[in-house]
């Protein structure tokens, strides 16, 4: 109680504490120090242990419960993984099917476009130039020529810059042959894409198309080309009466 008074009001509690904190190598002090050292050591070790492995301090029941929870959670996640994987496969195959259908449609559209004259075309073929040095070529001769080309497998046919399609028609009189209402004048230049050898052979057979041209007093010049282009196109009117048959359900 002889200590200088603390700033607050003097208290026996603080004085006792101060007295106790005074360095005295008494038996009690040393004993308390040893025990406190043991306590601090155990405290730190336990804290470290707790941070390191939170599972090792748990009882068997807790561990079993955690294991159960983890297992059921894992099962649920595995089920979810399977579901999602199936969904993904479904979507992928669906998009594959869709893509395949689109590709098929595109190829079909290209084929149809070339065959109906909606699209420009290129490829091997022949150019047949018909002149009229000694007479005039009849419309039926031109029709004959066209049919011969078609028979020989020509896939795209152009005559003097006009695309010839399934609905093309020749009319008129010799010297004024009309194709779909357009009057054509010599020389007539047929451009046909197809197998050049087949077409050339077909046109040149005795009594064939070129023979008919010569019979009309005309001349035919035939050139085989490994690559030629037909740029002329024909816009087709939408079908007025015919509609596609709906695909079978399923």
């Amino acid at each position: 109680m002889t200590e200088p008074t603390p700033p607050a009001r003097p208290s026996t509690g603080w004085a006792t504490l101060r007295t106790a904190l005074r360095f005295r190598a008494s038996r009690g002090q040393i004993l308390a120090g040893l025990l406190c050292a043991a306590l601090g050591f155990a405290l730190v070790v336990q804290v470290r242990q707790n941070n390191e492995a939170s599972l090792s301090g748990l009882s068997q029941a807790d561990l079993v419960r955690i294991l159960d929870e983890t297992t059921s959670r894992g099962d649920a996640l595995a089920t979810e993984v399977n579901d999602l994987r199936g969904e993904r496969d479904e979507l992928m195959s669906g998009s594959d099917k869709r893509q395949a259908a689109l590709d098929a449609l595109r190829r079909s559209a290209e084929t149809q476009g070339i065959l109906t004259g909606r699209l420009p075309a290129e490829g091997p073929g022949v150019i047949a130039t018909l002149t009229e040095p000694n007479g005039q070529i009849k419309p039926v001769t031109m029709l004959n020529m066209l049919e011969e080309l078609r028979n020989a497998g020509a896939e795209a046919i152009d005559l003097n810059g006009h695309r010839i399609t399934a609905s093309s028609a020749f009319a008129g009189i010799p010297g004024a042959v009309t194709l779909d209402g357009v009057v054509l004048t010599a020389p007539f230049t047929w451009t046909a894409i197809g197998d050049p050898d087949t077409i050339a052979t077909a046109l040149q057979i005795p009594g064939g198309a070129l023979a008919a041209v010569r019979g009309n007093g005309g001349e035919g010049d035939l050139q085989r080309r490994t690559k030629l282009e037909i740029r002329s196109v024909r816009t087709l009117p939408d079908p007025q009466f015919a509609t596609p048959v709906p695909p079978a359900a399923g």
């Binding site: 106790a20 904190l21 005074r22 360095f23 005295r24 190598a25 002090q29 040393i30 308390a32 120090g33 040893l34 025990l35 406190c36 050292a37 043991a38 306590l39 601090g40 050591f41 155990a42 405290l43 730190v44 070790v45 470290r48």
Partner: peptide
């Protein structure tokens, strides 16, 4: 005082 020192020594020993 020795008790406080002992506590500190124990903690340090545990850490080391």
């Amino acid at each position: 005082m020795i008790a406080v020192i002992g506590l500190v020594v124990g903690v340090v020993a545990g850490l080391l």
